[in-house]
């Protein structure tokens, strides 16, 4: 599902060029649930953004869902993301004025589905995360855990092969975090979604099938 070879990423900081990732090789099989761990600033988000097609590498090759990403234009990447990747962020990133189902519907606006089908699919995705009853609520009227579940429904609605999550429980209390992690686990086990999740929290990583450790831009240890 994901294959990285010799991936490097440089950032420009003022006049200085900083290499943040130093040649990453990583394979993730279809159906895996991988926890990406490591200290702050080690490059987890950078790596995740590359896998999700939000950014392009300075060197190396990235193949995700059968597609080589490193040479795609930003427009091509956008279309590819819409079809293949679901994103979940730490801060949910819902549009505050739209009701939950409209937030979930957003990725479907890029498809040719009818309005009725879009709404139905959005409601199905909300049902999947246990929030069908909250479809008409605005983000402000939801708890943090509920907001994150709406965000997960949004990531799921176009039925992507890969879910990419950056500290999805970073802003939640233990109990709510466990609900969200349980949901991700269900999506992985019962719906066959491949998941890459960045987390600081070893307990959260327990939900994953494999851990990948990143330190100062290098993969240090990979284990179960």
């Amino acid at each position: 599902m994901v294959r990285l070879a010799g991936v490097k990423k440089n950032y420009q900081r003022g006049r200085q060029t900083v290499e943040v990732l130093h040649g990453i090789d990583l394979d993730i099989a279809s159906g895996e649930f991988v926890a990406l761990m490591g200290p702050s600033g080690s490059g987890k988000t950078t790596l995740l953004n590359l896998i999700g097609g939000l950014d392009t590498p300075t060197a190396g090759t990235i193949e995700v869902a059968g597609r080589r990403l490193e040479r795609l234009t930003s427009a091509a990447l956008a279309g590819w993301r819409a079809a293949n990747i679901g994103f979940v962020f730490q801060f949910y990133n819902l549009l505050p004025v739209l009701p939950a189902w409209r937030n979930v519907e957003l990725p479907l606006l890029l498809t040719s589905l009818s309005a009725a089908t879009r709404r139905r699919n959005a409601l199905i995705a909300l049902e999947l995360v246990g929030l069908a009853a909250r479809a008409e609520h605005r983000p402000r009227e939801l708890s943090g855990g509920e907001e994150q579940r709406v965000a997960i429904a949004r990531a799921l609605v176009s039925d992507p092969k890969l879910l990419v999550c950056d500290e999805p429980t970073g802003d939640l209390d233990r109990h709510t975090a466990e609900e969200v992690l349980g949901l991700l686990q269900t999506l992985n086990r019962e719906h066959g979604k491949t998941i890459v999740m960045v987390t600081h929290d070893p307990k959260a990583a327990d939900y994953a099938g494999r851990r990948v450790m990143l330190d100062k831009g290098t993969l240090v240890a990979a284990g179960a």
Partner: peptide
Amino acid sequence: PELAVLKTLGFPDR
């Protein structure tokens, strides 16, 4: 941030 989310979801720049 909201516009960035739209782009993340695959909304083209244009």
